[in-house]
Design a protein around this nucleic acid. Sequence first.
DNA 1: GGTCTCATGTAAGTGGTTACATGATTAG
DNA 2: CTAATCATGTAACCACTTACATGAGACC
Lengths: 168, 168
Amino acid sequence: MNKILFLLGLIRSTKLHGYQISELLDSHFDLIINITKPTAYRLLGTMEAKGWIQFHEEQVGNRPPRKVYAITPAGEAHFQKILRQSLARFDPIGYSTAINLAFIDAIPQDEILPLLAERQQRVEVALARLNQIDAQQDHYRHVFAHQRRHFEAEIASITEIVKRIKTP
Amino acid sequence: MNKILFLLGLIRSTKLHGYQISELLDSHFDLIINITKPTAYRLLGTMEAKGWIQFHEEQVGNRPPRKVYAITPAGEAHFQKILRQSLARFDPIGYSTAINLAFIDAIPQDEILPLLAERQQRVEVALARLNQIDAQQDHYRHVFAHQRRHFEAEIASITEIVKRIKTP
DNA sequence: GGTCTCATGTAAGTGGTTACATGATTAG
DNA sequence: CTAATCATGTAACCACTTACATGAGACC
């Protein structure tokens, strides 16, 4: 229900239509949460069916009409409820990007280092994107800071493994 | 395909039957990866169908027979392939436990602190379990170390937010 | 005699993805 | 006049979960 929490939270602070949301997801929130375009539209539909959000159609010129969503009182109540649940809980999983580290002994050493280097570079690219975005964002400061910590933990982890491999 | 990678990796180092695997998952690997019992059995079935693993039945007393799985050459090849893919890639998501942090302003301050405290305690419980297990494990050293880093990053993140809330 | 452990799964349902579909508008 | 952008989705499929089913044996 993280996706619904996130979408409700977005709509709650600004009225948005689906296309806008899917653009936000593509441009920077993909670093934080994974919601594809069809999923976004589908969730908007079900949320509307549950009465958590309402839309009114807007038309600019002769373009296809937008469905601009706003949160309802019922939606706000639901948001408050699941936000509390979500804050208090902790799911240890999600970091399972890294079970593969269990098996590095299965690969000859000269092959491991380039693989880990590639991985590290990808983390660094993500981190760089994160830092660029963060400068502009304010509302989502905490989340981006949190994510940065995890990316840095990822890099620290990789460099430690590389060190251990190089110095036997 | 992380789950298949993990199961192949497990079976690769020791012959195992489904029940044993699901016990390992319940007892400590649940801190690293999320595979429920039915999923484990189902994946074992599909992996066997693909020729990556083989089983022979063993019977102890009059108990239900066990299907003891071992990896095949085809399975080893597949394992080597997806391990490399998985090591080189990096998926920034998975940390999406924490989008909720974007919305803490939506909750009155006196309510936030207990929620965050509860969250933190859960992380600490997980961390304590992790440390206990790690002492015994050797093969999975890297993974547990990696996971520990992320748990610590989680705690650091929470304490920083708490600090910011307390000192405005 | 009831409950826990051993050992296997199935069935029903949810949640999500990928690929596809549509059609107008604007920029080069 | 072609390509990208704006705006919505559907259809088919896959992955996974929760709850349920079975049955013997060991323990108290």
